[in-house]
């Protein structure tokens, strides 16, 4: 939480678990920017949790001025369930309201003892995989969709892709309920050979637990994870914080905002910043949710709704 003496404006940013460090850094920078812009002090409070849970909390009355969640699907629930934001919320900010991106990569143990290089390796019989349950974790859905998208491209048919996923989840040692739990399983409990993780989470693990213990493996193909942001119209209107909330999100696209995202291992949207720091991000072929699945709603209904593809392949 960034506090300023006698704050003139207060904002609550309701976000998901892995952005804690990102927004701690960003809030300090934004408070300074806001002071320069308006001469006023601003206090920004952060709330972190599972992306879906956070969206439900806002729907149930948590007064978030802005939401910065993992999935556009979760943000969209604010419109679908409570009309807290307009239907076209995603077109209000550049890049579909996703100011930074990430992708899904592998974290393996030092020396990569099982020689894991791409998605194909994860379905080999002796590989133990750690990834959370996509029924309960937003991050896990990205992992699942990355794997499925790869299989579709590589194997060419839905049936083959489902078969691939079935083999993959058969190799999953522990199906944690959330991304943080999966990291605990892999890093602290030393379970499994590979953790499927967001790129920024994987690098944070290296930073936190020691670069000598793990390696990040970037597969040939993965998904473009686009965490989305928006201000919550009904709340900012009630609080009188519309201007501050908009500026808070728009500043994420600024050079400074983009650099802070890079420092926290998110891929920037700004081409200049990407060029400047691009070396730390390995090149790979990225596909989007829209390209492969026709959007989050469709992906959710096909794969994660009760009786969906995940239920089919995991219960078999």
């Amino acid at each position: 939480m960034v506090t300023a003496q006698a704050a003139d404006v207060q904002l609550l940013n309701v976000s998901y678990d892995p952005t804690r460090e990102l927004y701690q850094d960003y809030n300090v920078a934004f408070a300074k920017h806001w002071k320069e812009l308006t001469g006023k002090n601003i206090e920004i409070q952060q709330s972190h949790g599972g992306s879906g849970k956070q969206a439900r909390a806002v729907i149930d009355g948590l007064d978030a001025d802005v939401v910065t969640l993992a999935l556009a699907y979760d943000v969209d629930q604010l419109y679908q369930k409570a009309k807290l934001i307009p239907e076209d919320w995603q077109s209000r900010l550049p890049n579909n309201s996703a100011p930074y991106t990430s992708t899904v990569v592998f974290l393996v143990r030092a020396g990569n003892p099982k020689g894991i290089k791409d998605w194909d390796d994860l379905v080999k019989p002796d590989i133990s995989v750690v990834t959370p349950n996509p029924k309960t974790s937003g991050g896990a859905r990205w992992n699942y969709l990355a794997a499925y998208g790869y299989a579709l491209k590589k194997l060419g048919s839905e049936a083959a892709a489902k078969d691939y996923l079935k083999k993959l989840y058969k190799n999953v040692a522990v199906l944690d309920t959330g991304a943080r739990g999966a990291t605990v399983s892999f890093v602290e409990r030393e379970i499994g050979d590979v953790l499927i993780a967001w790129e920024n989470e994987a690098y944070l693990s290296l930073q936190e637990y020691g670069a000598s213990k793990y390696e990040v493996i970037v597969p040939s193909v993965s998904i473009l994870a686009e965490p989305t942001v928006t201000w919550v119209d009904k709340v900012v209107s009630k609080h009188g914080t519309t201007q501050a909330a908009k500026e808070y999100l728009q500043y994420l696209y600024s050079k400074e905002g983009q650099e802070i995202a890079v420092k926290n291992f998110y891929r920037p949207r700004d081409p200049e910043i990407l060029a400047k720091f691009g070396k730390q991000f390995k090149n790979l072929s990225l596909f989007t949710i829209d390209e492969v699945y026709g959007g989050w709603n469709k992906a959710h209904n096909t794969h994660f709704a009760d009786g969906g593809v995940f239920d089919q392949i995991y219960s078999q």
Binding site: A173, V174, L175, T177, G181, S185, R189, I191
Partner: peptide
């Protein structure tokens, strides 16, 4: 050792799920 760790973790996850 892996099997034991997996078992222990599964118990933790089961407990977490049951608690939730």
């Amino acid at each position: 050792d892996q099997k034991v760790k997996i078992l222990e973790r599964k118990i933790e996850v089961s407990k977490e799920t049951a608690d939730a």
